[in-house]
Design a protein around this nucleic acid. Structure first.
Lengths: 159, 159
DNA sequence: CAAAACTACGTAGTTAAATACATAAATAAA
DNA sequence: TTTATTTATGTATTTAACTACGTAGTTTTG
């Protein structure tokens, strides 16, 4: 549509956001088709706890790549679903140790075949010539080395 | 990090959202370095009006690819900045015809060199081997033909 | 070992988008 | 020409992330 947005990243993020919303809805419906009441957004936390067993709030946040406040709100939902539980760390009283409940573990067993299907469908969609993940990694790496602002200011001063 | 999120699109959208937030902040700072008070999110509307002169709310929404409520809130901000104005369409009384104010047009003249710099920096960042835009286009196209849910249900029934 | 700095967690508030709903004007159909 | 449908706009609410801030433990340092 235009010089900056079309070639840039600003509008792209809106499109990806929509894409992911669509996938979330479809994901939820697909779980439902197996008789499972599970929201795709819970997946990262549940999957992490499935492998790590016991983790603190901040540890989970780091694992799933969200800020801790975002993580806390996911944990609240999962606690309401009785899929996870938490108790104070006796060694470090600031920490809350989170783990799956038996109900949570049972659910994972039921969900595993669902995940397999989802996983291959997502591969089908995202594995393009122009790999989405790769493209983002490359852009992020470039910005890590030098921010947009730094690059822009430099170009400005060169004129 | 895991089978679905790392290879899929769910986490990718969060990362892109962050990327775009970063770019927005830097963009605003870069405008400021020219003494210009302009938020990058206003760009699509302003740029569209620069080329089309007079448009209704829904027409702008379609041009920039947002829903009309989102567009309305952008328009409100721009009106507060006195960069745009609107009047009722005499032919169709439902329509509000939006256009740039003289102040808005002056601002565009000042912003043009800034846009040139931004545009080349964004090219530098986004033009990777794995082109971001291309990758998204390909994923969207695939999903247009057959949704995630349809693909998943089909795979499920084949088992 | 007391003061300072850091870490873990939690809450409140913000943001940029979306949906869902409401109203009024214009057009089409009975 | 009334009635039904569609279109344009607007408002209210929701969502998923964020930042900013506060408090309470823990660790480091003078």
């Amino acid at each position: 549509m235009n010089i900056i947005d079309e070639s840039g990243i600003l509008a792209i993020s809106t499109r990806l956001q929509r894409l992911s919303e669509q996938l979330r809805k479809d994901g939820a419906l697909f779980y439902k088709s197996y008789g499972i009441d599970f929201e795709p957004k819970w997946f990262p936390v549940v999957y992490t706890l499935h492998h790590k067993e016991v983790l603190s709030v901040v540890e989970i946040a780091n694992e799933i790549g969200y800020t801790h406040p975002s993580t806390i709100s996911l944990l609240k939902e999962l606690e309401k679903q009785k899929l996870i539980r938490s108790k104070k760390d006796k060694v470090d009283e600031r920490k809350r140790l989170i783990s799956l409940t038996p109900k949570g573990q049972e659910l994972i067993v039921k969900m595993k075949p669902v995940w397999d299907v989802m996983s291959s469908v997502l591969k089908e969609i995202a594995d393009n010539q122009n790999n989405l993940l790769q493209a983002i990694n490359e852009a992020e790496t470039k910005l890590m080395h030098q921010s947009f602002l730094q690059r822009a200011l430099q170009l400005k001063s060169e004129e």
